[in-house]
């Protein structure tokens, strides 16, 4: 068990890794900013929960995976889906409710699934996907595989019974599942200390006798180091873990409360933005001499182009025909 780690303990950063991690985080950031714009224009329906501020968790954690490993997430899942390798064009098309979206335009923001990258989906019910991760872990063991499952969720899911049921199962049955709690300190509008008797979420692991650890979720290298260790151990020994990534969402819970000013102060939000994970990695890369200003500009340009292309692709994709209502209910 360990407390939050600092950047001092982070692994060495080389140019290839720096560009890769920064590129993925910048892609998610730009994608989400654009999604907010498209929502405001009425192009995206339903609800939209942005991942802005939390990019280091999805990117740092998934950077330790093999392509055949699994990831499963909550309703704030655009970042995990992109980090796992999904095509931004198809993610955006899904948000638009278009036919070429990852879920044929029938799912929308909270319901991204991508079998091609072993992304087991976003889930709209808080905490409900945690047992699914345990089941995937069980199946891996049953079939003698050595993959692992990363399961992402927020601090709100820890309130739910299914969190505790799932923790018990993976501990009892020794399943290769890494639960990554992205503690952004608010369950929608309720602050963590008003909803959890134990706010050190990693400590719940002690109860179940599994490895628990807190990590600085704004430091992509710290997340990568921490998750990398538990992933390798899970692969080798079938041991689960609970990682608490301490992070912060810079936007509201959804587009309903974009300023987020009712339940937290503007000063707090501005203070947390000083630890923007993208700015932190950029500064570290420049300081270590593994990134140049030109590299950073090139990455920004690349992701801007990729996201523009995703929007163009989504715009061009047709709406699903009415007959799609009746598909995929049973096997045809």
């Amino acid at each position: 068990m360990a407390q939050a780690k600092t950047t001092i303990l982070s692994p060495r950063l080389d140019a290839v890794l720096a560009r890769r991690l920064l590129g993925q985080m910048a892609l998610i950031r730009r994608f989400e900013e654009k999604a907010a714009e498209m929502y405001a224009l009425g192009k995206i329906g339903g609800f939209l929960h942005l991942y802005i501020g939390q990019e280091a968790v999805a990117v740092g954690a998934t950077s330790t995976l093999r392509p055949d490993d699994y990831a499963v997430s909550s309703y704030r899942e655009h970042g995990h889906c992109l980090a796992k390798g999904s095509d931004p064009r198809r993610v955006m098309a899904e948000l638009f409710g278009r036919r070429d979206g990852l879920s044929k335009g029938k799912g929308g923001s909270m319901h991204l699934f991508d079998k091609s990258v072993n992304f087991l989906g976003g889930h709209g019910i808080v905490g409900a996907h945690l047992p699914l991760a345990a089941g995937a872990g069980f199946a891996i063991n049953y079939q003698g595989g050595d993959q692992v499952v990363l399961c992402f969720f927020g601090d709100g899911a820890v309130h739910e019974g299914e969190f505790h049921e799932a923790m018990n199962l993976v501990a009892l049955w020794k399943l290769p599942v890494i639960y990554i709690c992205e503690n952004n300190r608010y369950a929608m509008g309720t602050a963590i200390h008003r909803a959890l008797a134990q706010t050190e979420i990693w400590r719940f692991a002690e109860t179940y006798g599994i490895h628990g650890e807190a990590v600085d979720g704004m430091d992509v290298l710290a997340v990568r180091e921490c998750v990398g260790r538990v992933v390798e151990r899970a692969r080798r020994d079938k041991t689960p873990a609970l990682i608490e990534a301490r992070t912060y969402r810079f936007r509201g819970h959804s587009m309903r409360d974009p300023a987020g000013a009712v339940y937290r102060t503007r000063e707090e939000v501005e203070r947390e933005k000083q630890r923007d994970p993208i700015a932190l990695l950029t500064a570290r890369g420049l300081k270590d001499g593994v990134l140049s200003e030109a590299d950073v500009r090139a990455i920004e340009q690349n992701v801007a182009d990729a996201v523009d292309e995703a929007v163009a692709f989504a715009e061009a994709s047709p709406e699903p025909p009415a007959s799609f209502l009746f598909t995929d209910v049973y096997k045809d």
Partner: peptide
């Protein structure tokens, strides 16, 4: 509404 689990928002008014 039809006997399907759910529909996306794009085709809500068909449902």
């Amino acid at each position: 509404a039809y006997d399907v689990p759910f529909v996306g928002f794009a085709r809500e008014w068909v449902h």
